[in-house]
Each structure stands twice: as C-alpha cells, then as structure tokens.
Design a protein around this nucleic acid. Structure first.
Lengths: 351, 351
DNA sequence: TCTCGGTTTGCATCCGCAGTCAATACTGCC
DNA sequence: GGCAGTATTGACTGCGGATGCAAACCGAGA
C-alpha cells in the first residue's frame, strides 16, 4: 500500500509534499488510475467520475507531475532550443516566436545558450540526459554529434544552417540568393569596385553570405574586391570600414556587409572617419532586416529574412517529426525580401 | 527481474530504446546501484568499479536519465525563466547571460514567453506541472498566483519588478534614481519645459520610470510637462514625438523617453518631421543603454542598466534559495550608470 | 427477467534511477 | 593469523503516473 495523505496539511512551511494522484484518488474515493485518466486527453471517464476527481484535485491543488508522466510515456514534452551568442539574436523575436509556436502545441522549450558555437559538447550531453523530444538548433554540430543524436532517435531541425550531404532537416533563409540580388542591383547601378565586410569565420551564415556575394560578383565580372572580417557587431563594423579604407587607399563604390549591424557601423565610420556619405559617396548594404536598419538615420538597404515564417516552419517541422519519427528529412529554404533603403544607390525599381 | 538488454542492438531504425543503468550494470557485471553511484557526485565507488562501469557505459552510449533522476530526487534541475514580449529583450544578453549563469551551476532553463504580461495563468500551470526548482520572472504575477507558488514551495526571483509589500526576492535597476539623475542634469542645464514619452501602461518598468521622472520634475519645481504614451517601440517613439508637438504647439526643452528605442524614434521624428536637431534644438534622453543608443547617429544620453551584474545576481539568488528554501527574501537594487551621450545638452561634468 | 455489447473502473506493473540497509571485502595493526 | 574498523557493493523499495487486462456496470433488446 502507498502512503496515506499526510495528516497535517496546512501548517508546515516550505517544501511541503505536493499532492499526488493517490492523494486525489483517496479524497475522491476512487482509484489512482481513475485520476490519471481524468487528467489525460483521450481517456475514458464518466462525467460523474470526472467531476468527483476534479473537485478533489482542486481542493488539494493537485497538478499532474510532468516529470513522472515523462518517465512512463517516454515523452518529456520538451524540446531543446540551441542558440549561440553569434546567433543573430538581434531578433529576440526568433526565440520568442519559437517558444510561442511550441507552446501552442503543448511543447516546452529547454534553452541552451552557447558562449561560442564550439561549445556543443556539454550542451549535447545535457540535451540527451534530459531526454528532450526534439532539437532545434541555430548552432552547428559535428557529424559525430549528429550521429549520436540520430542514434538516440531524436529529431533535429537546423535553423539557418545546413550540412551539405547530411540527411537532416533545416529551415533557412537563402543567403546566397539575397546576396545575388544585392550584387546585381549594385552592379546594375554602376558600382564596379567592392568592399566586403565578412562575418566571423565560424559563422555559417556569415560564410554563406560572403560566398554568395563573391560568386555573383565574379559572375558579373567584377574583380576589384577587398574583404575584411568582423564579428557581426557595431564596433567591428566601424573598424572594418576603416580597415577597408586602409587596405585600398580609396573607398570602393560599394560595401557589402554581412549583416545590418555591421552595415550601420560602416555607414557611421564612413561619415565620421572619412567624410563619406551613403548613398551619395558610397553605397552600403547589409543583411537581415533588423529593427535598427529601419531607423531613419540609417535606412539600410538590405534583405529581410522572413523570420515569422521561418520560426513557424521550424517549429512545425520539428513537431511533425516528433510525432512521426519515420518522416524523412526536409530542407526548407525561404527567400528574403529586398529592402530598397537609402544607404545604397540602386537602379530604379522597374514598375 | 527486469528486462534483459535487447538482443538486436544495431539494426532497428528509430526510437531504439536507450540504454539504462540496468543495461550498463548487466554488461559490466555489477549491480544497478553501482552504476547509479558511479554517475553521482558524492557517491563512493572503487576505481576498479568506476572503470568497469564507464567502459560498459561508453560501449552502450549510456546517459543517466535526468527525468527519472528528477522523479526520485524531487529536483528537476530546471528553473523557469519567464519573459514577456514587453520585456526589454532588446538585450538578448539578459536571456543569454542568465542561461549561462544557470548552466554553470548545472541548472537548465525552461523558457516561457508571454504574448503579453497578462498570460501568466497557463504559464504558471505549466511551470508547476514541470516541477521547476525555481522561477525567475520578468513578468508580473498576481498575489493569488504568488501564493500558489509559495504553497508549492518554489522560490521566485523577480527581475526588474517588485511587488510592494510582498515578501518576494527581486533584482532590479533603480529606475527612479536614474530618472532623477537625468532630470537633475537637464534642469541644471537650463531646461524648463518637458515632454514625457511613457511606456505601455502595463509595464512596471515603464511606470517606475515615468513616476521617477515626474516626481523629480515636481521636486525641481517644473510644471510645464506634457506626457504621451507608447509601447517601447521605434515607431511609437516617432508617433509620440509628433503627438507631443501637436499637443503643445511648440517643442519642449527636453523629452524624457521611457527607453532608448523610443528616444531614438523621437530624435528621428524631431529631425525629419519638425526640423529639430538634438541636442541643439531639443534635448532627448532615454533609458537602458542598449546597443543602438551608442550608434554614432544617435548617441543617446541615457542610463545604462548593469545587465551583467543583475543577471548574475538574479541567478545566484535563485540558486541559493533552491538550495536553502529557508533563506529569507532579498531585494537587490542596482544603480544604473549615466551615459552622457550627444542627444541632450547637460551641464558640464564636474571634474 | 436474462443476455449481449459496450463503457467504466480498479488492479497490478512498469518507467529509470537514488538511497537505505545489510552483507561483504579490504585495511592496518597487534 | 585474527580482529576491529572502514570502504564497497548489492538487494530492494519507492518517486508519481500511465496502461493492459479483467472485473464490474449499464442499458437495451429478446
């Protein structure tokens, strides 16, 4: 026999034992199974039973223990969301929206924040120990780590990064395409010499943007290209522009920055450090479409990622794969949207 | 007797049963308790035992099940972190730093994001079901909800909000003090007419800032004050400034915005909509010290919150109370730091 | 009133691990 | 070599809830 409900239910201070289904069952004069069924979705219970149990449960402040439930059902109802400092958290939206999407589906978010993208080891260990039902990651994992995850039977969805030749699901914004648009517009408007402000070397997104830009520049026959690399932050954006000037001696016709924040840094440094105004003296473009890019003082020409659709997709793809583990991987790539801001001289938009 | 390790360990695809301590015990030829001890911190086990178990564990890819462990130890090793869209997530830092601080202490973060601060009901229910060990919240709870939490014996720490007369722990930045500094500086520099751009009505932080400013203005004998209210966003910042002008007919000497982003909006609207430049024609101040406030085009005069120390404190206060539930509540209030930017005319700083 | 099909309900077990207690294995020392 | 004392180890139970199965129940048709 189990314990009986504690006699003194009101006086002891803290750490009081929480009511269990047995307590409720006893008070309601039914079996524990009955209580369990009342608190399940598809279970059968008569209305009378339901009522009696609910009354008792409310009286005791009973709440099913999700931990215990997870143990028996083999479903924790938690997913791991992995971000790194590098992650363009400039949209907190990503995280908030993701969490809300999951929430609506009854899935809880266990958050893992990496100092830098290399710290995946410990984090992976934790995710496995907590038996998360799925993983949504904006940080890279090594093939070995992926195999570990695969072996554990945990579905994964990558956010804005994808491993070539790896059979994994991912949601991303097509960075190359976006850069192609920017380059085409700039070239069509007559720009011939280019500066590239890259992101940090270990950022997949940064890399994709850089190669996207370089490929298209090369396709367009542009050869006068100078690159420097930063860390996605405002200060390095400024530093990068200065470095670019030092390297070249004279300003390029256009600067392609790996994200909006660095583009903003470039605009400021161009003006304050070199008396160059965008777009009159130089064209500067970014990527992301974050809030500050829309501030009137900058009005950055950029490509906006469809954050809402991306997070929505990511969440639902992951949930689908949790419910049906046999589902094959899927890679979704979203086009961004070109924002014709005022920081670059582009060809007039065709009507 | 328990099950024996599955015979076919390599071929079935997904959802393969994960190795348990029994599997490891069997392979290593020891008892389950032994395995359990090897994977615990303070438990005693001979080196020989340790080695044998680890070898077997590695061979099987065994990882202790944190869910099961949580069930037996009555500690989930998870804390709930509650944010609302309103939360000044403009520093994703808050979240990332918090998560890292908790991480270092072996505590996992279960994230709850509210659409608006009123949605605490469902969220609270979830937190209780998941048996989080503690709650760190940047959203308000009603006294009844607090009582529920208290009854469940779960420690809580409020971030940048505190209930008067409630016996709860909190960490906050002293908003009133910051506003007092700003007002004093502005008045000392000769400003006599003021515009106040408030935050959204249901934001505690916004409210504190507003009353802080109003109190000090009144203490300084300033009476020409016009207020309008926004939602902490850039666009409403602009709208608010326009509204302020419409209400007054002429610009105030200074505008006190409830946060930096709205201050930026005011700067832009003043310039673009009314040809007013800060600080020559008008002084505009914000609050928070977020990244964009430092961009050269704005250089907002503001008060910076000591985010790092605040998150650090919040995390450690919560953890302390998890480890010792008898610890009495504690309210920590941090002073911000006045940033003498270029968006407001202040009296010269005394040497 | 009796039987049949369909619901409800209760019983017994198990999920994976931690911790208690008793049994056993070492250790040093006389 | 024998013994007290300590360090390890194993058997067993319970954390709180879900679920297969069989018993109990209910209503309706014969």
């Amino acid at each position: 026999m189990r314990k009986t409900a504690q006699s003194d239910n009101t006086s002891d201070r803290t750490g009081r034992r929480r009511a269990t289904s047995y307590d409720v069952a006893e008070l309601a004069g039914v079996s524990q199974s009955a209580v369990s069924r009342v608190f399940q979705d598809g279970a059968s219970a008569s209305k009378a039973m339901r009522d009696r149990v609910m009354v008792a449960a409310n009286k005791l402040g009973y709440r099913p223990n999700a931990i215990a439930r997870g143990l028996i059902t083999q479903r924790s109802n938690m997913v791991a969301v992995v971000i790194s400092k590098l992650t363009n958290l400039y949209y907190p939206e990503v995280l908030v929206q993701l969490t809300q999407h999951f929430s609506e589906q009854g899935v809880r978010v266990l958050l893992f924040a990496l100092e830098n993208e290399g710290d995946t080891r410990k984090v992976l260990e934790q995710m496995l120990q907590f038996r998360v039902d799925g993983i949504l990651t904006a940080a890279m994992f090594t093939p070995e780590q992926l195999e570990t995850i695969e072996n554990a039977g945990i579905p994964v969805v990558f956010y804005n990064r994808t491993l070539k030749d790896q059979l994994v699901s991912s949601v991303r914004c097509d960075q190359e395409e976006g850069e192609r648009w920017l380059v085409d517009e700039l070239v069509a408007a007559g720009h011939r010499t280019f500066g590239i402000v890259e992101g940090p070397p270990d950022s997949v997104v940064g890399l994709e943007r850089k190669t996207g830009a370089l490929n298209e520049l090369s396709a367009q026959g542009i050869t006068d290209i100078t690159s420097v690399s930063g860390d996605f932050g405002y200060e390095t954006g400024r530093a990068c522009f200065a470095q670019l000037m030092k390297k070249r001696g004279s300003p390029p016709d256009a600067v392609i920055a790996a994200n909006d924040v660095m583009a903003i840094g470039c605009v400021d440094e161009a003006r304050e450090g070199f008396g160059l105004r965008a777009p009159e003296d130089i064209s500067i473009v970014g990527f992301d479409g974050v809030g500050p890019a829309r501030y009137a003082a900058y009005d950055i020409t950029t490509v906006r990622q469809p954050v809402h659709r991306m997070t929505q997709s990511a969440a639902s793809m992951l949930i689908e794969r949790i419910e049906d583990p046999e589902l094959s991987p899927e890679k979704r790539s979203f086009s961004g949207k070109l924002i014709r801001g005022g920081s670059a001289r582009l060809k007039a938009e065709d009507a």
